[in-house]
Write a protein that binds this DNA or RNA. Structure first.
Length: 259
DNA sequence: TGCATTTGACCTAA
DNA sequence: TTAGGTCAAATGCA
């Protein structure tokens, strides 16, 4: 397992180096290096996506090991317990069973729901689950139709205090994610901001309307970000929780040098 | 006006 | 019959 962490660290360090190079190039924006910037942006995004995959897999593996040790009873082996000790219906019935038992099923639990995990999601449903006090949100890849990508995820609060969210991924992304990100817009209208923040936006998405599809509507009692608060955003707030935790665990912040 | 989200209805497996 | 998953019209926002 340690090798996975090391692999993730190496990937993050690689991304760190690319980000630094990008910063240097942007500091000398008068030079015609748009191609180089694009390549570096690609590299940075690729590194974080890879690290993210590694960390999610690692987290999930640990979680399953915990479950196996906690559920030593054979008849309980197919059940997942949430933090309150309640047996989740995740593996119990219907389509859920087929989805959950597929090899493409990955689950992650964190104090914050994973909104910015490097992929662009579109919410297509929300449901009150009988055995849970909280609603479950259903997301599918934004490129489901465009690129026939079948990746999906479910986000559900499983514990209120302290908050704990379960994010379950189903299927693999078959969309050309990195290709799409390669052309993401860096808003150079404000050089200060552009040198501090790399946004994981897609130019064809409606994010240019400042409507983040991953942002939960206030109605959901989830999180929204005011412009004042956004100024105080640290990487741990806008990166996925996995990457942020890795940054903290490995004792460096790849973006701290960018200011 | 176009887009994403919301939400009630419908579908389907157990 | 029940409950989880999905669809699609309605709604809201920029």
């Amino acid at each position: 397992m340690k090798s996975c962490q090391q692999k993730a660290m190496e990937t993050l360090l690689q991304g760190h180096g690319c980000a630094n190079q990008l910063k240097l190039i942007m500091d000398h924006a008068e030079s015609d290096s748009s191609m180089e910037r694009e390549d570096l942006a690609k590299s940075v995004l690729h590194c974080f996506s890879d690290a993210l995959s590694i960390l999610i897999d690692t987290s999930d593996h640990n979680h399953r090991q915990d479950e196996q040790s906690n559920n030593s009873s054979p008849q309980d082996s197919s059940l997942v317990r949430d933090e309150s000790g309640r047996k989740s219906s995740l593996h119990k019935r219907g389509r859920k069973t087929a989805m959950a038992e597929s090899s493409d099923y990955r689950r992650h639990e964190a104090p914050n729901p994973i909104y910015h995990d490097g992929f662009l999601w579109r919410k297509y449903g929300q449901k009150q689950i009988k055995e849970s006090d909280h609603q479950r949100s259903y997301y599918k890849c934004a490129y489901t139709k465009d690129q026939n990508c079948e990746a999906k995820k479910q986000v559900q609060m499983i514990q209120h205090n302290p908050p704990l969210y379960s994010t379950t991924y189903f299927g693999h992304h078959t969309c050309q994610l990195h290709q799409a990100y390669a052309t993401f817009p860096l808003d150079t209208s404000d050089p200060q901001d552009s040198s501090h923040m790399i946004r994981f936006d897609h130019p064809n998405s409606s994010n240019h309307q400042h409507q983040d599809p991953n942002q939960i509507h206030p109605k959901d009692e989830e999180y929204t970000m005011s412009p004042e608060k956004a100024e105080d955003w640290s990487p741990s707030q806008w990166m996925s929780s996995e990457v942020a935790h890795a940054v903290e665990a490995f004792g460096f912040n790849p973006f701290s040098d960018l200011s």
